[in-house]
Every structure is written in structure tokens, then in C-alpha cells.
């Protein structure tokens, strides 16, 4: 789980273009949207692509993403349970 959290942080920095940010800068329990990392709606859509591309998880309903993408921890837990690759 710890490895997955670190991997996710690296992926998010990469796909969402967080220039100059390191995994240590991200609190895995902080909210990804709003006050925490401050992601927006396009970032949410890009996370849906990441889930499919990297972990083989297809999220058909973008509203489903809201709970899954609450924090890095919730994302990691969902991936652990549902990943197909």
C-alpha cells in the first residue's frame, strides 16, 4: 500500500504537470480537490484516464470519481481492490 501511495504521487505529479513538486510535498490524506492539491474538473478527467491506462480500471460515471478521488489514500485503496493490471 505504501508503495502504491508513492507511485500514485509520482504519477499525479507527472500527468497533472506539477512542476517542481516532489512526492513528499503531497499529503496522501489531504483532499485532492478544493483546499488540498487544488485540482479542477479537467484534472479529474485526466485521473479517470490514469485509472484506466495504468491500472485497467474503467470509471464510466464521472460522479463515481468524487469519492474515489477524495485523497491519494482513497484512490490507492480503490486501485488495490479493483486493479486489473
Amino acid at each position: 500500500m505504501k508503495d502504491l501511495v508513492l507511485e500514485l504521487k509520482k504519477e499525479i505529479i507527472e500527468v497533472l504537470n506539477f512542476e517542481g513538486m516532489t512526492p513528499e510535498d503531497i499529503d496522501e490524506n489531504a483532499p485532492l480537490f478544493g483546499d488540498g492539491l487544488g485540482l479542477d474538473s479537467i484534472d479529474a478527467l485526466e485521473l479517470i484516464v490514469l485509472m484506466e491506462k495504468k491500472y485497467g480500471i474503467k470509471l464510466a460515471d464521472p460522479n463515481q470519481g468524487r469519492e474515489i478521488f477524495a485523497s491519494i489514500t482513497t484512490m490507492a485503496a480503490y486501485i488495490k481492490e479493483h486493479r486489473t493490471k
Binding site: D43, E46, V49
Partner: peptide, 9 residues
């Protein structure tokens, strides 16, 4: 095949 929304915009 993974169309990217952040590129599309």
C-alpha cells in the same frame, strides 16, 4: 488508445 482531456482542451 487513451484520449487525453487535458490535451484536448
Amino acid at each position: 488508445y487513451y484520449p487525453s482531456p487535458s490535451l484536448f482542451v
